[in-house]
Design a protein around this nucleic acid. Structure first.
Length: 356
DNA sequence: AAATCGGGGAG
DNA sequence: CTCCCAGATTT
């Protein structure tokens, strides 16, 4: 039996029951593929359900506000995916008459759709013979064929795409592509795969050569930078606070947060107070206090953000204030969302306390 | 070619 | 702690 036929046979016996596997509707497939970029099925699944409920068709997503799209996306990460998702929904709804294009090349032109996603939609929705190469496929192919070219090198990307094209199943591309990814996710897993029960074990080159544990080869990871964030959380006697939108390029773009003061190292209360004297909003602060005894270390793949939330009690907020109860309507980073949960369990809550 | 962009789960 | 997930885009 050929490689492709083994994959297909394994897939028929082992595939998970997932909502996007019961349709070939391009809107649903596209939505699931964008959400699953660099994201495990278990993490993306509840978001997929939420989006399908709120936006049954591409027109519904196109008509929604970016605020609502980001709020529903909150917690899934890589927020440029949500912004590109919204832009592409508008493009398809208003420029393409609600119809997704059906070729790899045209799909590739959509925002947020790269080589992998264009191939996935073209094959799964339209049966086109385009090989998908995601993290799972890199692992399966590198092991089965014993390829040690780094998968994130220019040469590797090209080599594995070509190899994937050579071994794919042309007639059953829809199931084959999903099958090889599922095989990587369930059987040929990154750590300690159970090769004893693998249907490809007799012809797997890495297993024969004892290199399963060292494949695929990947070039060095980028090193983590440490940042120091001081979030200034205004609380006025009228129950108002201040939220600002992150508008510059970079992390959490277009999400909302409390006024932020970045520093080179952790600030002491005294140092912070000096800075607040010169600020527009906070020079008349009644009281300033650190919220958490220990600073929060929010860990991202490329950033460690040491964070202190400072409660700034004020008589009033002259302009730009919003009722604290409305904060939860805004899309915010997980870091902020978790603080809000702690705040609601603290003695600051509820805010209209005689203490203030 | 390298850096950037999030968050979470497995081991 | 490390690794990596149905990657895309910018620098």
């Amino acid at each position: 039996m050929t490689f492709a036929n083994e994959i297909l046979a394994w897939y028929e016996r082992n595939k998970r029951d997932l909502p996007w596997r019961t349709t070939t509707n391009p809107y649903n497939i596209w939505l699931s593929e964008i959400m699953l970029q660099q994201t495990r099925v278990s993490q993306g699944l509840p978001y997929y359900q939420k989006f399908v409920e709120n936006f049954p068709a591409v027109e519904d997503l196109a008509e929604a506000s970016e605020e609502k799209v980001l709020k529903l996306w909150q917690g899934l990460g890589y927020y440029s995916r949500a912004r590109n998702l919204h832009a592409t929904a508008k493009m398809v709804a208003y420029e393409y008459d609600g119809q997704f294009p059906d070729t790899y090349k045209e799909l590739l032109a959509l925002k947020g759709v790269g080589d992998y996603t264009a191939s996935a939609i073209a094959s799964i929705c339209f049966g086109r013979p385009e090989p998908v190469v995601d993290g799972n496929v890199y692992r399966v192919l590198s092991r089965y064929f014993g390829v040690d070219i780094p998968i994130n090198s220019t040469e590797g990307v090209k080599y594995f795409k070509q190899l994937a094209r050579e071994v794919m199943h042309l007639e059953r591309i829809r199931d084959y592509n999903q099958g090889i990814m599922e095989f990587g996710a369930m059987q040929c897993v990154p750590q300690s795969p159970n090769c004893q029960v693998c249907p490809l074990s007799s012809s797997c080159k890495a297993l024969k050569e004892g290199t399963v544990g060292s494949l695929p080869v990947k070039l060095k990871k980028t090193k983590v930078k440490t940042l120091y964030f001081n979030y200034l959380v205004p609380i006025s006697k009228g129950g108002l606070t201040i939220l600002e939108q992150r508008t510059d390029n970079g992390i959490w773009r277009n999400l909302w947060q409390f006024p932020l003061l970045e520093s080179k190292k952790e600030l002491e209360l005294k140092e912070l107070k000096v800075q607040l004297e010169a600020s527009e909003h906070f020079s008349k602060a009644l009281n300033v206090s650190r919220f958490d005894p220990m600073s929060i270390i929010h860990k991202l793949s490329h950033r460690h953000i040491h964070t202190v939330f400072w409660i700034i009690e004020l008589n009033d907020i002259s302009n730009g204030g919003i009722p604290f109860e409305k904060v939860e309507q805004y899309p915010v980073p997980v870091l902020i969302d978790e603080f809000l949960k702690r705040l609601k369990n603290s003695y600051f809550w509820p805010l209209n306390d005689s203490r203030l």
